[in-house]
Simulated assay, not measured.
Amino acid sequence: MHSHENTARLMPDVATQAQPHLAGALDWVGMDGIEVPVRFDAGDGEAQRASAQVGAFVNLGRSDKRGIHMSRLYLLVDRYLSAQTLGADMLRALLGEFLSSHEGLADRARISIRFEHLVRRAALRSANSGWRAYPVSIEASLGADGFRLELGTEVVYSSTCPASAALSRQLIQEQFAKDFSADGPVDHAAVLAWLGSEQGIVATPHAQRSVARLLVRLADGAAFDLIGTLDRVEQALGTPVQTAVKREDEQAFALANGGNLMFCEDAARRIQKALDADPRIADFHVRLEHQESLHPHDAVAYASKGVPGGYGVPV
């Protein structure tokens, strides 16, 4: 009876057979959608386990070789990601093994990891809290230009339109002029009751759910700090979506919207300023989408750090 090793050696491997009529170097070859558990420390010192989708790739620089060793990539992904917490050093070592396992075939390696990370968020005023699931994408590459590590996520928030707010205030002023004569005294109690009525507040500004999609390139030696990045962005915006909401929390959210009127351009500049002040971030790219309630198309803005040769304007 043959051993497993001997049986494997006898099996045909057509991937090693050259096809001269189809010769050519390939940018990337590998697998996407690999299902694997990962452990991720979002910056609070607690590694949380999640189910991830992973893409593993190397380039195929040898035009005379038909394919790569995909099973080697898969086994390396399983060995590293199942056992170790995600980090820059670990990913650099993993990509190094991608290349070692394809010596003579490849000189560039890349991995992408996608999952969701749960963060507990406190309510605005009540003593309650709830969970928010933030999407996380990690992209790492290794090649002649060195090691590169990127972190992507998104923040969902409310945006109240400044133009709509101004138009609403004008209508309220006009209604006040109709209901209260300029010639006689104004009764304080009557005005107070009027301000609390639907007849007095005849218009309200429109607001919409909005999304900021972030991609940051970490500086050399910087550790993952998802929570720190989220906190910076959410504090800059002032109106991130909430989890547990009692009436006092909803009122506080309404107050926050009133104090943070913003066009998509305003939101983009707020985030740009917040991320630019973070020394752990070498470069960033942000796409903001205000999903309008006034019309069926969205208002969109982009921002970046402006690093020469960096993300810049997206395609």
Rank of each mutant, 00 (worst) to 15 (best):
Q199I: 06
P185E: 08
D187G: 04
D183W: 02
K178C: 09
Q170G: 01
A193I: 00
A207H: 10
G200T: 05
S197G: 03
A177Y: 06
A203E: 12
S181D: 14
Q175I: 00
D179E: 10
F176D: 05
G200L: 03
L167W: 09
V191W: 03
A190T: 08
E174Q: 15
L171H: 11
T204C: 11
A207M: 03
S197C: 01
F180G: 03
T204Y: 05
E174V: 00
S181W: 02
P205N: 05
Q175H: 08
A189V: 10
L167G: 11
K178G: 06
R169D: 07
V191I: 13
E198Y: 12
G184N: 13
W194D: 05
D183R: 07
H206F: 02
R169Y: 10
H206S: 10
V186C: 12
Q170D: 14
H188C: 09
S168M: 02
L192G: 12
L192S: 13
I201W: 00
G184L: 10
E174H: 05
A203V: 07
L171G: 05
L192E: 12
L195F: 08
E198A: 09
E198H: 12
R169T: 06
A189H: 13
R169Q: 13
G184T: 15
W194K: 00
E174R: 11
E174N: 10
A189L: 09
V202I: 15
V186M: 13
D179H: 02
A207T: 14
A193G: 06
R169G: 03
F180L: 05
G200P: 07
L167T: 06
L192R: 14
A177G: 08
A189W: 05
A177H: 12
G196N: 14
W194T: 11
D179L: 05
Q175V: 00
D183S: 11
V202R: 07
E198P: 08
H188P: 14
Q199C: 05
L171V: 11
D187R: 02
A182N: 09
A190Q: 14
G196D: 13
V186G: 01
H206G: 02
Q173S: 10
V191H: 04
F176P: 06
L171N: 09
W194G: 04
V191E: 00
S181F: 07
D183V: 09
Q173L: 13
Q173Y: 10
